[in-house]
């Protein structure tokens, strides 16, 4: 009786384990993608002409110089050859597997979409107003309270705002464009 019960128990457990492992294998197995290399884009193309390919699915080739240490959901990609100095931020989205730190230096083929955020003069003004709002008078000169913003941080923020204003002025546009890449999948193409 006991043996029969145990036999059925083991059968149930084995079946459950088989089902779970099959589900996991299906979900974990990365679908191979072998896009046409001639259609792939590089970092320079994305950073300089990204606005023309926004939200389109593209394949990016480049080598990773660093991955975020906290979970690897972000990486920084450059073009090989050293001719172009720009670095593109790549964010892993959806089911994209994370980057690891020991990938640094590997050439990756990354599938995803080019994204852009735009900062207008009104956004910079609002930012400055927010910092201004955090400043407040004290009853006595020199006194501070726990709500006081850190002066060093505030100075850094003000310097950044100034920097953004100058960048906006030099850009020749009415906004500052920030381009990044949302990756949905990637693979190493130069495993050595």
């Amino acid at each position: 009786m006991n043996n029969k019960y145990m036999k059925h128990g083991f059968q149930k457990i084995a079946l459950l384990a088989l089902m779970l492992s099959s589900m996991a294998t299906h979900a974990l197995s990365a679908e191979p993608f072998a896009p046409c290399e001639s259609g792939n884009v590089g970092v320079q193309e994305v950073l300089e002409h990204g606005a023309e390919m926004l939200n389109e699915e593209v394949v990016l080739d480049g080598f990773i110089i660093a991955a975020c240490k906290h979970g690897g959901r972000k990486g920084f990609i450059r073009d090989s050859g050293g001719e172009y100095e720009g670095t593109l931020r790549v964010a892993c989205v959806d089911d994209c597997k994370s980057f690891t730190q020991d990938l640094a230096g590997q050439t990756l083929r990354i599938k995803g979409k080019v994204r852009e955020s735009r900062m207008y003069a009104k956004d910079i003004d609002a930012w400055e107003a927010q910092i201004q709002a955090e400043e407040h008078e004290h009853a006595e000169e020199g006194e501070s309270c726990h709500n006081c913003p850190d002066k060093a941080d505030e100075a850094k923020l003000r310097a950044r705002i100034e920097e953004f204003r100058n960048t906006l002025k030099d850009s020749g546009k009415d906004y500052i464009s920030t381009i990044w890449f949302d990756a949905t999948d990637w693979e190493v193409v130069n495993a050595q």
Partner: peptide, 8 residues
Amino acid sequence: KAYRQHFS
């Protein structure tokens, strides 16, 4: 170890 990439 095998060289991968370099940049400045």
